[in-house]
Structure formats: structure tokens, C-alpha cells
Write a protein that binds this DNA or RNA. Sequence first.
DNA 1: GTCAATTAGGATAAGAAGATCTGAAACTCT
DNA 2: AGAGTTTCAGATCTTCTTATCCTAATTGAC
Lengths: 158, 158
Amino acid sequence: MTRILYSNTCEYAIRALTYLAQQPTGELTMLSEITAAQELPRAFLGKILKDLVRTGMLRSARGPTGGYSLAREPAEISLLEIKEAIDGSGDLERCAVGLSPCSDDAPCPLHDAYKPLRTAIRTYLQDTTLAGLAAGLSEKQVLLAGRAELSTSRPPGT
Amino acid sequence: MTRILYSNTCEYAIRALTYLAQQPTGELTMLSEITAAQELPRAFLGKILKDLVRTGMLRSARGPTGGYSLAREPAEISLLEIKEAIDGSGDLERCAVGLSPCSDDAPCPLHDAYKPLRTAIRTYLQDTTLAGLAAGLSEKQVLLAGRAELSTSRPPGT
DNA sequence: GTCAATTAGGATAAGAAGATCTGAAACTCT
DNA sequence: AGAGTTTCAGATCTTCTTATCCTAATTGAC
């Protein structure tokens, strides 16, 4: 199965970063806590976060009280930035169906139809931030928690 | 580098099919002609087209006068159909950032923001057909041909 | 029937992405 | 200082995608 907007690795990163954005500002969170909460492969996520530390998006500390935290405000970190840190840049610019010289000047046949969609995608990636995701996630979680409580007090099928 | 919307293989398929859509209806086109025109890896494209024959999108004939042709009207074949034939279905339905139970009923945190974009993507893939691509490609090609003529009669830098 | 041309299909290799493992470095606590 | 815990960094393994090669099957022309 193919991913639409970003790679698998990038999706892992987004989920981990969203979890970090839910934590109190500046507080360190251990890798194992993140992977437990989000059900992610621990060793692999460690590698991903390491890379994000190097790009400056994350801070990390070693030792018993160590862990990871966001280096900047969640509202300042967009999906686009995450995607470019993980997947690299360039694939948003690329046209499918390459008539080799492809630009606004000499566009490929997909260009005209594709351009508005590409703009929409870019806007979405730019406007969606970790702050928004974290807020949305928290909201859904209390919603689900409420439902769970309801279903235990009155089990399904009654 | 990661592809947006579809895989590399799928992009090859789209380019080959667009070329076929440019040919006179029902006329057979050899694999080598397609790969030469679109600069695609011959052996690999052979495999892709073989699969498309099996799904019924293409017809093929062996022997000296053999080749491939579209089995249906170019206007009836959408990018979405091609994508599903090559990449399989399911990735358009999938949410990133999986809070496991993700549906309209219990959406994941990305769901609200992502849904309109996903709809736009689906619409684009459904509404873009081989007929449109072929028409666009032909148009661009005469445009480029005109330009090439112009630049030979009056070389750049004069 | 023979020959040449073409697609079909399997086997397999090369490369990238995904995932794991291991030892080292750093920090805290005793 | 020493033990234990945690991240860091690099090496390694696996899996999937992309790509190639070679043989078989089919067809048309002579």
C-alpha cells in the first residue's frame, strides 16, 4: 500500500511529535513512553527522533532523567517542515507524467490540472501545525474516554 | 525522494497510457515505440502493461504486428482507476496519525483537517482522464515544436 | 512449415526504505 | 567512584520497490 502525502517514516514522526506537543512545555519525555502511547516500533522511532534532533526540531538529553522535547513552539512546527526533514524536499515540486521540460513556462500535460491541487496540498501541509494536531488529539481522546465509560456502565447489546 | 499521490511505477503507467491515448483508436502500438517516445525502461514497462492487460484496461496482441492498445475509451479511464490498478486501493481511505479507531464516527486528530483535502485529491484523480491528458500533451507538444522552430531560425543570444 | 517479431512470465539482481541490534556516551543516584 | 538507566551513533538485517535478463508462447509473413 502506498502512502499519499508522506512516507511511513514521516507518519511515525508526526505521531511522535504530536504526542510530544501534548506534554507540558519543555518537559522531557522518554522514548519508551512515546512508543508505548503511540504503538510505534521503539528502535526505529529512536532513529527517526535522532535525526530530528540533528535538524534542531527536537532537544534530547541522556541519562536517567533524559528524553526528548520539542525545541520550538508546537504552533510553529508545520507538517510541511516535518515532511521536509524526513522525506526531503522536491516531491511537491515534481510533476507526474514528465514531458521533460516541465515548468509554468513549458508545463507538462498534467501541469494545468495538477497545479491547483498541489497548491491545496501545500497549503494544508503548511497550515497544519503540531499545536493543532495535539489539540485535536486531546479532544478526541476525552471523547473516546467518555464513550468507553458509557459503554462499561451500559454494555453493548442491552 | 518520495512520490506524492502515486508510486513511480504508477507514473510510468500513466505516461505509457497517455501515449497510447494519443494513438488512433484501436491501433496497436509496440512496446518499444512507447518506451522510445516516453523514455521509459522497456523491460519494466512490459511488466506493468502486462498487468494492465490482465485487469482489462489494455488489449494486447503478439507477433510481428502485435502491440498494445486501450481496451476502452480514453475519456472513460481516470487516474484513480490507473492508480488502483497499480498501487492497489486503500491508501486514499487511510488517515495519517492513527489514533487507531479512525472513521467519521471516531475520527483521528488529522481527520477533520484532512478530510476536505482528501476529497479534493479524490476528485482530481477521478476527473482527470486519459483523454484529457492526451489532449493536453498534444497541445504542449505542438507548442514546444513551434518554439524549437523559432529558436533555430533565430538562435538564442542574438 | 519455417522464420522473424512480439508479448508473457519467471527468476533474479540492485537499490531504497523500513526496522533491528549493539556498543558507547552521558547523566543521576547511591 | 560505581552502578544503573537512558539516549546516541553506527553497523547490520530485512522487506519492498524498481529494474533487468532470459526463455517460452503466440502470431503473421513468406
